[in-house]
Design a protein around this nucleic acid. Structure first.
Lengths: 199, 199
DNA sequence: GGACGAACCAAACGATCGTTTTTTATATCA
DNA sequence: TGATATAAAAAACGATCGTTTGGTTCGTCC
């Protein structure tokens, strides 16, 4: 079932509104423990509220996840947009996008990390919405890969998916074994693919 | 907390023992829905048993996951072992290993899919055990990458992690968009990395 | 400064969770 | 065939889940 995002209050908000704190807490806990393992009480407690109070802002737990997801997509899109603006070459733009992606997911934003941590299949009822938001973001990478100067027999789709897979999976080992910075890691990933096409 | 695997019954088992059915059901559901979203009652129902009966075979839900994980590692190791035995060149052996990995995870074994679907951070109490089992398997890939004829300045660790990331992430898009077979996909992945080193 | 609505508390709802306990049935083997 | 241990049923435990309901506080604006 595809349900719309919760309708925002129509009238003016109060200055003591704790909706931002709720979103921050949800993003942190969803990123840390996953969706199913995080309870509404966990989220409420981490911002000094009661579980029932969350339902003033969101009609259901799934809607809270959708809001976090949406913010994560927005943050990633903005980070990538800024990063590629400074680069001119196609390969340089791709590398900058990868670096921005890794930095945002690994170090900057719990919201972005939720995109990598919580997958559509984890929440069947919201899977369609989550997939659509992921696709919105990954379209950016499709354009970057399409712009690469590659031989005609190169499968750009596989190249893109290989790169995105490597980027997203980095989360599972980066914290403990990482001697590279996110930026250096992105450079190495792209380098491994780039040199392939100079042959 | 690292707890040991459940001790198997010491005496002879009965022929109507449904432990294999329990493991199959758990593997399928864990692979499909994840760990937290799968209840003991779900598992029991899918093999015509009651939830409490599962505790004759396993002391806790976590121990059931550990057993599935262990079987998944065993199946993957065996598939890779057979695949690389037929190949002689280092690149050929790596490609064969990737093909075996993808075929097993994507088409053959729910147990293997659990290794990709359920991550150590999903089950904090069992994270150490799960990590150790994953490491057991990935050591195989470390050896294969170490055997590659690569220039001295190539970061073999990053190459290995990039490849494993691409392989494991394939699960999230393969079912719907995949025009390649697992074998063809493995070939393209390795090809993208191999050509890089001929330059 | 009084009214109004936004934002939250307090308390409980039924459902489901992992797990335990007690009892029953049956395959195996002496 | 009878004894025994294996394997599972049956039923319940307390805890926790997402969610609802009704009441309360307080910032905001006329």
């Amino acid at each position: 079932m595809v349900r719309p995002l919760p309708s925002k209050p129509l009238k003016s908000a109060r200055s003591d509104n704790r909706l931002p704190a709720v979103l921050d807490a949800a993003a942190q806990l969803f990123a840390e423990r996953g969706y199913a393992a995080t309870s509404m009480r966990d989220i409420a407690e981490s911002c000094d509220m009661l579980a029932g109070s969350l339902y003033y802002h969101f009609a259901a737990k799934e809607d809270l996840l959708l809001a976090v997801y949406e913010a994560g997509v927005a943050q990633l899109l903005e980070a990538v947009r800024q990063a590629i603006a400074k680069e001119s070459s196609a390969w340089g733009r791709l590398e900058a996008a990868c670096a921005a992606h890794l930095e945002t997911v690994l170090e900057r934003s719990d919201y972005a990390q939720v995109l990598v941590r919580v997958l559509p299949s984890d929440v069947p009822n919201a899977a369609a919405n989550l997939k659509a938001m992921r696709a919105d973001y990954e379209r950016q990478f499709r354009e970057l890969v399409d712009a690469l100067p590659l031989p005609r027999d190169c499968d750009r789709g596989v190249l893109r998916l290989m790169l995105l897979g490597a980027l997203n999976w980095s989360r599972f080992w980066f914290a403990e074994g990482g001697r590279d910075t996110p930026r250096a890691l992105a450079r190495k990933y792209v380098q491994l693919l780039m040199e392939a096409q100079r042959a």
